[in-house]
């Protein structure tokens, strides 16, 4: 099986009655192993929801989700927690680091939580790659936003997880810092054969990926291989046009 993670006919509904929102509407996707997949779509299209459900942070209303061969809906809270700890890495848009822990402690946090000793050589490589060797004993509050996100990426990679999920990891960064973070994710795929799934609404960010999935109104509407920023932008404009038409109707 070549998919690192996948969902099948995934449905996620929020609220009840009049306020019911269908955030995912029978979505089926596969995230290929050792590949960089970007999930794009307008705001509110269900990108984050898809990621949360695929990563075991949330449960589906209907349909199924797998991480490798493990079906998530069969797991309880404790198993999901252990799965996240051992087989998934996370990078969020903001607030990625525990403020009371140093950079090094933040990187090894998932391993420490499991009581596992980090592989020193691997840790050393990671520190080298993210370029924060001289900052290891600093607190997150002493780092810039870009540096903080690089630490978050290092933490996500530290346990050599099956998949790294990143939700708008560059959303709060300027383009240069953002480029560094995306470069890190890219090289993780290329040199370490890491599977990465990244949610973004920035075409330039999506261009780092191998594949781009387009979501709209909770449905998968398109897939693009070998994306460039221009092609992604054009595709997005098409959505906006359709949305405007839909709104006018």
């Amino acid at each position: 099986m070549s998919a690192a993670a996948r969902v099948e006919k995934a449905v996620k509904e929020y609220g009840v009655g009049d306020t019911r929102v269908r955030a995912l509407d029978e979505v089926s996707v596969e995230f290929a192993a050792a590949r960089f997949t970007a999930v794009m779509g307008p705001s509110g299209s269900g990108k984050s929801t898809l990621m949360h459900c695929a990563a075991g942070l949330d449960t589906l209303s209907d349909g199924r989700a797998w991480l490798g061969d493990t079906e998530l809906s069969a797991l309880g809270d404790r198993e999901l927690t252990l799965l996240r700890r051992e087989r998934i890495g996370f990078v969020f848009q903001a607030f990625n680091l525990v403020p009371t822990l140093t950079v090094r402690e933040n990187i090894t946090l998932p391993l420490d939580l499991g009581g596992a000793a980090p592989d020193p050589a691997w840790l050393d490589t990671l520190i080298e790659v993210v370029g924060l060797r001289d900052r290891l004993h600093h607190r997150p509050s002493q780092l810039s936003g870009g540096q903080q996100q690089r630490v978050a990426v290092a933490r996500a990679l530290a346990g050599r997880p099956q998949v790294v999920f990143a939700d708008e990891p560059t959303g709060n960064l300027d383009s240069r810092s953002g480029g560094e973070v995306l470069g890190l994710l890219r090289s993780a795929v290329d040199t370490m054969h890491q599977s990465v799934v990244m949610v973004t609404h920035d075409p330039a960010a999506a261009a780092y990926a191998d594949t781009v999935l387009f979501l709209a109104d909770g449905r998968l509407v398109d897939t693009m291989r070998e994306p460039t920023a221009e092609r992604v932008l054009d595709r997005m404009k098409a959505f906006d046009g359709r949305r405007t038409r839909a709104g006018a109707r």
Partner: peptide, 16 residues
């Protein structure tokens, strides 16, 4: 709350 959420997301069990 966000910090606790983060800890839970990266694998802290409820018991921990």
């Amino acid at each position: 709350i966000r910090e606790l959420g983060l800890l839970r997301a990266v694998g802290q069990t409820r018991a921990q």
